[in-house]
């Protein structure tokens, strides 16, 4: 193993970890407020990738306009999901909402297969993102380099919203106690919708960066990243935004290091997330930064 290869893989690990982190934030925020694992989150990510394919390849839009459209469309889809699959079940037992989430996920996957067929579509080659950059002897794409920075900046934005703004304060209040939040005059539905807006836009940005790295778009592409990012959120302490990012980084790094140092085990790359999940659940179920999970009164 040369130092160059190691550095290259380190950069890859950080980059893929940041992508996981972007998706994990969405899982953790929705869980924090609704105590719901939004199984359809990975499918929003998948849809976002398709939106990008259509905007750029079919409609020939410049990538930055495409990106804006993709974010807006994904947010719309996230809101529609919340409105149709979760809001009507607001007072239903949690298991019903969970089943609705699984149903919504299957629905989106099958809808995509029906509309776009199961044949993978190529993700548009966005030159500014895929251009290789050489640093010394190692060569990385622009997207690999900027992804961690994008993630950190977005993490700060999310933390700013939740900790320093009025809607963020309402989010934290709603996450503890729906009824008392209503007594303060807080519109619960608006607050929940806001978390879906944030989660979906991060998933959309994640999809654009993901597609530049793995340029193959198909209906089930959100399943594995979705599961992994959920695990990243659990690892970091579900409900905790910084934890989700930390969990994403650790998971991405663990995967890449496995591939780098234990090459015979490369085929188990996807399994490592589940091994981590089992270890976390056995050793520290609240995750790295999680607080004790208390059920809502």
């Amino acid at each position: 193993m040369t130092i160059e290869l190691f550095m290259q893989q380190l950069a890859n690990g950080i980059s893929i970890g940041s992508l996981y982190a972007l998706l994990a934030i969405g899982y953790t925020m929705v869980y924090g407020i609704l105590r719901l694992i939004n199984f359809a989150h990975g499918d929003i990510f998948m849809m976002a990738a398709y939106f990008m394919v259509f905007s750029i390849i079919n409609f020939k839009l410049p990538w930055y306009i495409g990106a804006v459209i993709v974010i807006v469309a994904s947010v719309g889809l996230g809101l529609l999901l919340e409105r149709t699959a979760y809001r009507p079940l607001r007072d239903a037992p949690r298991m019903s909402i969970m089943i609705s989430a699984i149903g919504a996920s299957f629905f989106l996957e099958n809808l995509a297969t029906y509309l776009f067929t199961g044949v993978p579509k190529g993700f548009p080659d966005i030159k500014v993102l895929t251009k290789p950059v050489s640093i010394g002897n190692i060569s990385l794409s622009v997207s690999t380099i900027i992804t961690p920075f994008v993630t950190i900046i977005l993490l700060y934005v999310v933390l700013f919203i939740t900790n320093k703004t009025k809607i963020g304060m309402a989010m934290r209040a709603v996450s503890k106690d729906f009824e008392t939040a209503r007594l303060m005059g807080i519109n619960i539905n608006k607050v929940i919708a806001t978390t879906f807006i944030i989660g979906s836009s991060l998933a959309a940005i994640g999809a654009i960066l993901w597609g530049s790295k793995y340029p193959s778009v198909m209906p089930l592409m959100g399943v594995m990243p979705g599961l992994k990012c959920f695990i990243a959120a659990v690892l970091g302490g579900i409900g905790n935004t910084t934890g989700a990012v930390l969990g994403g980084f650790i998971l991405g790094m663990a995967e890449i290091m496995l591939v780098t140092f234990l090459q015979p085990l490369t085929g188990y790359r996807d399994a490592i997330a589940f091994v981590i999940l089992i270890i976390v659940l056995l050793v520290k179920p609240t995750g790295l930064l999680g607080e004790k999970v208390t059920d809502k009164v």
Partner: peptide, 8 residues
Amino acid sequence: GRRVFANL
């Protein structure tokens, strides 16, 4: 039962 927001 008070119901203050414990996390605020």
